[in-house]
Nucleic acid binder design. Structure first.
Lengths: 142, 142
DNA sequence: CTTAATTAGGACAATTATATCCGATTTTAA
DNA sequence: TTAAAATCGGATATAATTGTCCTAATTAAG
């Protein structure tokens, strides 16, 4: 079961944090990431591939190839990752599923949820991979 | 795609709001709720059935039967409904899916998320079906 | 007593999300 | 030139969620 963000998106965030912590290395392979973070390898392959179509990460085929951040970790936020993988549905949809919920036609928690939702967006917008890389010291990431 | 709460849970919330607005009537049928709220009828049947095993709603078989709130709408909160349908996973799980995320071993957004999550819980805890019934004036509920 | 309207409950189907497999291509190093 | 290690990309498999169908049991009204 996933919560707000899809499983794919969670894997993407975790993997990019891993990459951010390996900035000294040119390329990091799917195999390495998957085994350290306990993510299904082939599934991760597809996720990273789709991220490599954006300007967030880049890939290199062949021996000693792999993936690498495409720009400075300080310029990649968790929000950027979520936006690519999950799109904007999580910040558009009514939290209790009322059809056509809007300011003009609000559900019972519309106003309150709008504030909370904005705080969630703010939370992931202001966390860059640089911030995060220094904070994460979990096993698997070292 | 659902967001935090499952589709089932969204349907349950909507249906119980509907019931709260029909307090004058003894029983309300699945057919009526489903057609007014545009919820798949048989799916709703199962959802309401499972809620009727708790003390939130009760059911009556046979002609002119249906469902009805089992207690005063002021004593049923959105939280109560969520708890029955979705359990507590939504307020236990790490928002970016870090395994073993905890106070001792926090993910990068752990502390911030904890606050937001508590606010979400508070939001649904303090909304009773009585509050909600008077607020909702959407088409389908009248 | 019969009929119609309803919930109950099991089986099944469809859809979506997650995960796996395999062969092709690319790249580097021996 | 060959072999190994990697991504790429399509096909397929599995699991979870959502939705449908059918029959039985129940109840009230005529």
């Amino acid at each position: 079961m996933s919560l707000i963000f899809s499983r794919q998106c969670e894997y993407a965030i975790q993997s990019l944090i891993y990459l951010a912590k390996k900035q000294d290395r040119e390329w990091v392979s799917i195999t390495e990431i998957a085994s350290n973070l306990k993510i299904p390898k082939h599934f991760l392959g597809k996720i990273l591939q789709s991220l490599s179509f954006t300007n967030i990460i880049k890939s290199q085929k062949g021996l000693h190839g792999g993936f690498s951040l495409a720009k400075n970790p300080k310029d990649i936020s968790l929000f950027d990752i979520v936006e690519v993988v999950d799109g904007d549905a999580y910040r558009k949809k009514c939290v209790i599923g009322f059809p056509d919920c809007s300011n003009n036609n609000p559900c019972p928690v519309h106003t309150k949820w709008k504030d909370l939702r904005d705080s969630i967006v703010e939370m992931i917008k202001k966390k860059s991979l640089l911030d995060v890389a220094s904070e994460v010291t979990k096993p698997g990431y070292e």
